[in-house]
Simulated scan of single mutants.
Amino acid sequence: MPNVLITGMSGTGKTTVLEQLRSRGCETVDTDADGWCEWGTLPGEADAGWLWREDPMRELLARPRSVPLFVGGCVANQGKFYPQFDHIVLLSAPWEVMRERLRQRTGNPYGKSDAEQAEILHHLREVEPLLRAGADVELDSSRHTVDELVGALLALDTVG
């Protein structure tokens, strides 16, 4: 069964897609949840940021399973784990769509303040191109329904 990373900026729909995949019987992990990340600095980097806790992530990705695993997240050290994923999927959306989603969401308070929105916009300009370069699939979540996105992700299972 494939391991699939769903990455992208805040407000692109990662959590929503993961919830739908879980409801369809897939194993899902939202790494924004407690226990998967820690605040730290990559070797040779000056800026701190969220990093996956490496031992739990390695264990998760190595575990045998009978259903596909979809991992959602966007952290500074995720590239280290790309070889353990069968697919890297970038969820993207125009800034205006992301901003409106951030304003309306209720399950996560991040992205509502002006400072957080400025940070996300900076990441959209600086980080998203790096994510795009590492992805083998990009899905624009503003152009597809959640069901269409889930269908495209489940279709990766047949390729992986």
Score class of each variant (00 low, 15 high):
96 E>N: 15
157 D>V: 15
66 S>I: 07
2 P>Y: 12
72 G>Q: 10
157 D>W: 15
16 T>D: 06
37 C>Y: 13
137 V>T: 12
137 V>Q: 08
45 E>G: 15
146 V>S: 13
78 Q>N: 05
135 A>S: 13
70 F>H: 00
49 G>F: 04
117 Q>H: 11
101 R>I: 01
34 D>H: 15
84 Q>E: 13
32 D>C: 13
50 W>Q: 10
99 R>C: 12
105 R>S: 01
111 G>D: 02
92 S>A: 14
87 H>C: 01
148 E>W: 10
126 E>I: 06
103 R>C: 09
110 Y>C: 00
84 Q>V: 13
53 R>D: 12
118 A>C: 07
128 E>A: 06
66 S>C: 12
65 R>Q: 09
22 R>G: 01
146 V>C: 12
54 E>V: 10
61 L>G: 00
74 C>Y: 04
91 L>N: 06
55 D>E: 14
153 L>P: 05
72 G>N: 03
160 G>N: 08
106 T>Q: 03
111 G>N: 06
110 Y>Q: 03
52 W>Y: 08
137 V>G: 03
138 E>N: 14
15 T>A: 00
65 R>P: 06
141 S>E: 00
77 N>A: 00
138 E>G: 04
128 E>I: 10
48 A>K: 15
47 D>Q: 15
44 G>K: 14
130 L>I: 09
2 P>A: 13
99 R>I: 04
104 Q>Y: 02
28 T>F: 04
131 L>K: 10
114 D>A: 11
82 Y>E: 04
143 R>A: 04
108 N>C: 09
149 L>S: 00
3 N>C: 14
74 C>D: 01
53 R>Y: 12
133 A>I: 08
43 P>C: 07
67 V>H: 03
8 G>I: 07
114 D>V: 08
8 G>Y: 01
81 F>W: 01
89 V>C: 06
155 A>M: 01
83 P>A: 09
122 H>F: 07
30 D>E: 15
3 N>Y: 09
121 L>Q: 09
100 E>N: 03
110 Y>K: 12
75 V>K: 02
40 G>N: 00
156 L>Q: 05
55 D>K: 14
13 G>R: 02
61 L>W: 03
97 V>Q: 02
138 E>T: 06
54 E>H: 03
149 L>I: 10
27 E>S: 08
108 N>H: 11
58 R>S: 11
144 H>Y: 11
